Amino acid sequence: MKTIITLLIVTFLTSFSTLDEEEVYLCGTEGAKKYHLSKSCRGLSGCKHEITKKKLSEAKELGLKLCAWED
Results as ranks from 00 to 15, higher is better:
residue 60 K to I: 08
residue 11 T to E: 05
residue 70 E to Q: 14
residue 13 L to P: 02
residue 69 W to K: 10
residue 47 C to I: 12
residue 15 S to E: 12
residue 23 E to F: 10
residue 6 T to D: 06
residue 48 K to P: 00
residue 53 K to A: 01
residue 20 D to N: 13
residue 52 T to F: 00
residue 28 G to H: 10
residue 53 K to S: 02
residue 44 L to I: 06
residue 44 L to D: 07
residue 35 Y to E: 04
residue 26 L to R: 07
residue 46 G to P: 04
residue 46 G to L: 13
residue 17 S to H: 06
residue 71 D to C: 05
residue 56 L to R: 11
residue 68 A to N: 08
residue 59 A to S: 13
residue 30 E to K: 12
residue 24 V to P: 03
residue 48 K to R: 12
residue 24 V to Y: 05
residue 30 E to C: 01
residue 67 C to F: 07
residue 65 K to C: 00
residue 19 L to R: 03
residue 44 L to G: 02
residue 30 E to V: 08
residue 45 S to R: 12
residue 26 L to H: 01
residue 19 L to E: 11
residue 38 S to Q: 05
residue 14 T to K: 12
residue 57 S to L: 03
residue 45 S to A: 15
residue 34 K to H: 15
residue 39 K to P: 04
residue 59 A to P: 12
residue 23 E to V: 07
residue 23 E to T: 13
residue 33 K to N: 12
residue 63 G to V: 04
residue 45 S to L: 10
residue 50 E to N: 15
residue 26 L to Q: 03
residue 9 I to P: 00
residue 60 K to W: 02
residue 67 C to S: 14
residue 35 Y to M: 03
residue 5 I to F: 07
residue 1 M to H: 02
residue 52 T to D: 08
residue 41 C to Q: 08
residue 64 L to A: 05
residue 64 L to W: 01
residue 34 K to M: 15
residue 49 H to W: 02
residue 39 K to L: 03
residue 23 E to M: 10
residue 40 S to E: 15
residue 31 G to T: 09
residue 31 G to S: 06
residue 36 H to Q: 13
residue 29 T to D: 12
residue 49 H to F: 03
residue 37 L to K: 14
residue 38 S to D: 09
residue 19 L to N: 05
residue 2 K to H: 10
residue 46 G to D: 15
residue 25 Y to K: 02
residue 6 T to L: 14
residue 3 T to R: 12
residue 57 S to K: 15
residue 54 K to S: 11
residue 37 L to P: 00
residue 11 T to R: 05
residue 42 R to Y: 09
residue 1 M to N: 05
residue 33 K to D: 06
residue 12 F to S: 15
residue 37 L to Y: 13
residue 32 A to K: 07
residue 30 E to T: 05
residue 31 G to E: 10
residue 6 T to K: 11
residue 59 A to F: 06
residue 71 D to E: 14
residue 56 L to F: 08
residue 47 C to P: 09
residue 33 K to Y: 02
residue 52 T to G: 00
residue 53 K to Y: 01
residue 57 S to M: 02
residue 23 E to P: 00
residue 27 C to Y: 06
residue 16 F to R: 04
residue 19 L to T: 08
residue 6 T to V: 14
